[in-house]
Amino acid sequence: MKNRIKDVLKEKGITQKELAEKIGMTEVGLSKAINGNTTNSTVSKIAKALNVSNEDLIVREKVLKAKYGSDKTPLHLGSLELPCYVLEDGTRVFSGRGVQSALGASPNSSGTWLSKFVNSKAIVMCLHPETLDKLNNPIKFERPSSSGSQSNTYGYEVTLLIDLCNAIIDADRSRELSINETYVKNANIIIRSVAKVGIVALVDEVTGYNKDKNRAKDELQQFLANFMSQEASRWVKTFDDNFFEMIYKMRGWSWTITSQRPGIVGTWINDIVYERLAPQVFTELKKKNPKNENGNRPYRYHQFLSEEIGHPRLREHISGVMAIGRISNNNWPTFMHNLDKAYPKQYQQLDFDFVPYEEITK
């Protein structure tokens, strides 16, 4: 347990050597007890010798609650994931296990791996003493929706990860001591990713754009509500056979199999049409039309577009795509090049969370 024995000794004008003699301990043993985890027995002896209560010597640890965040919504830095939380006092923290994993520790590593790593000779040499002290004293907090023995966990103030990554990179550059290549690679990924995100955040702040983010999100939700129906409408034939014939001709397929429309055409339609209609429309369509237990989507995406805005925009887009196909002389690469110029893909998610290509092709 944490203690304030040093402070009490100063208040009473007693040295550690004098206290050690009073309670029958060596000075080295007492120093370890004061600077480490003191036992209840030792605290009682010291309290009696100093004529104070045990409570006067013990620092009761307050367990903060995480108000925001979850291990299911990690921060993505390149290919790495870090569960992150904002505590009730505003402190931003990464989970200890998350930091270990992001740096490249084995999934089977114990919870003490990080402590051993930051106190290794190569890393200690590159860390400021104050940073090292904070890394050796993680913040205990309670995660949202957790209970029982798993209710409390430990985390680190988020900027400490940057300090640690810089120490890893500096240690590797010194070449005096060997650093695992995985740790160095991941440290570089984290530093570069944070730099990109950080510069965007700084620009947002100084320009005042961040103040408008909530308003922009509300407007986007209203736009999507107008663009889409809440439920699937009756299916009607929206894509004319000429549309599929155009695609088949550009891909060198026979027109006689147009009516079969193999699954790959669904991927092309997503690419050519739904990802280019408007911002976030494709993401919202996937949410409204999730895959069933068989891995299939039960409706056509266009069944969720509103009659007032969504369908007219879709028909207009298809007409434009057909025109681009004609001027591209049925050449697929030329067609896609012209399509990107006329109808560039719209951002489908905010906060750097893009739709994986693998998800689109499922």
Rank of each mutant, 00 (worst) to 15 (best):
M1A: 08
R4D: 04
V8K: 03
L9S: 10
K10Q: 14
K12D: 07
Q16A: 05
Q16R: 12
V28M: 10
L30S: 05
L30E: 04
A33V: 10
T42W: 04
V43A: 14
I46L: 01
K48A: 15
L50Q: 00
N54A: 07
E61T: 14
K62W: 04
V63P: 04
K72T: 12
L75V: 04
L77D: 01
L80C: 07
L80D: 07
L80H: 05
V86P: 05
D89Q: 10
V93P: 01
P107I: 06
S110H: 08
G111H: 06
T112F: 09
S115G: 14
F117E: 00
S120M: 07
K121N: 06
I123T: 08
C126M: 15
L127P: 04
D133R: 14
K134Q: 12
L135Q: 02
N136I: 03
N136M: 02
P138R: 03
S146N: 02
S146L: 01
N152Y: 11
N152K: 11
T153Q: 01
T153P: 00
V158Y: 09
T159K: 11
D163G: 05
L164N: 03
C165G: 03
N166S: 10
I169K: 11
E176A: 03
E176G: 12
E181N: 11
E181K: 13
T182R: 12
S193V: 02
A195H: 04
I199K: 13
V200W: 07
V203R: 12
V203M: 13
V206K: 11
T207C: 10
K211Y: 14
N214L: 13
N214P: 01
R215M: 06
D218M: 13
E219Q: 13
L220S: 13
L220R: 12
F223E: 06
N226A: 05
E231D: 09
E231R: 03
R234Q: 14
F239P: 01
N242S: 11
E245M: 15
Y248T: 00
R251T: 00
S254V: 07
N270C: 06
N270S: 11
Y274K: 05
L277D: 03
A278K: 08
V281Q: 02
F282K: 05
G295T: 06
R297Q: 07
E307A: 09
E308P: 02
E308R: 08
G310L: 00
P312L: 09
E316N: 14
S319Q: 10
S319I: 04
S319K: 14
G320T: 06
M322S: 14
I324L: 11
I327Q: 10
N329R: 09
N330S: 15
M336P: 01
A342M: 11
K345A: 09
Q346E: 12
Q349D: 11
L350I: 12
Y357M: 09
E358S: 15
I360C: 08
I360H: 00
T361N: 12
